[in-house]
Design a protein around this nucleic acid. Structure first.
Lengths: 199, 199
DNA sequence: GGACGCATGTAATAGGTTACATGATTAC
DNA sequence: GTAATCATGTAACCTATTACATGCGTCC
């Protein structure tokens, strides 16, 4: 049996994020980097500079294998495929409880000291965030509309990749909608309070 | 004029988080560490090992000063107070747009590959998260009830620390409620799907 | 007697970002 | 010509966590 952690190579969350994507289809490091750059539909981000070394480490640990795809018009690429050991590791991780994540939200931090600036100064920043969240909500909703057509989603076949994507998307939409709503409330409060409440 | 960044000491977000707390009242490193350990009511976390050196750096940059409070029964402590330069720096940061934060949510990551395990295996993990978010929602709601008694909040005096705390708390509650709701939906779907949808 | 709270610090390591590096093809 | 996409990698740096370190007083 090939052991997973030889020297001191313990799995990182990034590693599991890569496995999460590779569990669905074989991908190259470049593909993975693209999916992890902007967190649309996916909930973990990383740059290629972090991904390439991680893939190498994971392959050394026996969780992945790769095949080189030679190309003439473009650079050659490595397509990574999960091994059985990879699936075992991912399933083992899934069964473990979720570790509480440290909350770090710059918008909230600014809101916390928004009393230091004038309402008319603060309001536009809040409005900008509102627009961002509303836009992302719209993007997610379009993706959801597509996914809802999928038979696995319609039939609530929960043990399918399509349903899992559907579940995360629902949370994404809820998150963006909620954030946008809160921004709207705060912006309106700041705007209406402006004038009658000086520094 | 005392310059803020002499060598290469640029402000970090942690620095602003510390200023955000110190803008309300002078505090010791220990006090700050306590407020930043668990993100109840506050939205930035850090350990004391990160806080103490940062305070030293910020004082060197002229944003803070400290006075030693001698104690006999307990160790002496340093109480940090913001300087005018500190307020200027914090306000300047506040006026800048919020940088988009990388989304990293382990629960979402697990949901994304929940199709790999049986519904009856996934459901308890989701239920555990639901309980956590519901509990935090309750904590925040109790804090909100208190804050709503505050005259600055009742009169919508937005340029007060009390109102700023109120605004962040509202978002906190909304966040926890939303997350809990989504967990409930997912858990129920997984539980009801169990049996009629095998691997 | 041992754990916990007060109170401050440093050192080692892990995790993540930015920048450096290369090189072909395609689109404006 | 200039930028963008494809494709992979390394190096330097910054941020954050874990662990090490000290020492007194109180509570169980």
């Amino acid at each position: 049996m090939t052991e997973l952690r030889e020297g001191k190579a313990v799995m990182t969350t990034l590693g599991y994020a890569l496995l999460a994507l590779l569990a669905r289809e074989p991908l190259t490091g470049y593909d993975l980097a693209q999916r992890m750059r902007r967190s649309t539909d996916f909930f973990w981000t990383a740059r290629h500079s972090q991904i390439y070394p991680e893939l190498t480490r994971m392959e050394a640990a026996g969780l992945l294998t790769h095949e080189v795809i030679r190309q003439t018009e473009r650079p050659d690429k490595k397509r990574y495929t999960m091994t059985e050991a990879g699936y075992v590791a991912l399933r083992a991780w899934l069964a473990q409880p979720v570790r509480p994540a440290p909350e770090r939200d710059e918008m909230m931090l600014k809101t916390f000291c928004s009393w230091l600036i004038e309402p008319w100064e603060a309001a536009p920043i809040v409005r900008a965030r509102e627009a961002e969240h509303t836009a992302r909500q719209a993007t997610y909703e379009a993706m959801l509309a597509d996914l809802e057509q999928h038979p696995d989603v319609r039939n609530r076949r929960v043990s399918t990749p399509a349903f899992s994507s559907y579940a995360t998307l629902r949370r994404g939409i809820q998150y963006e909608r909620g954030y946008a709503e809160w921004c709207r409330w705060l912006a309106e409060t700041l705007e209406s309070a402006d004038g009658q409440d000086g520094a």
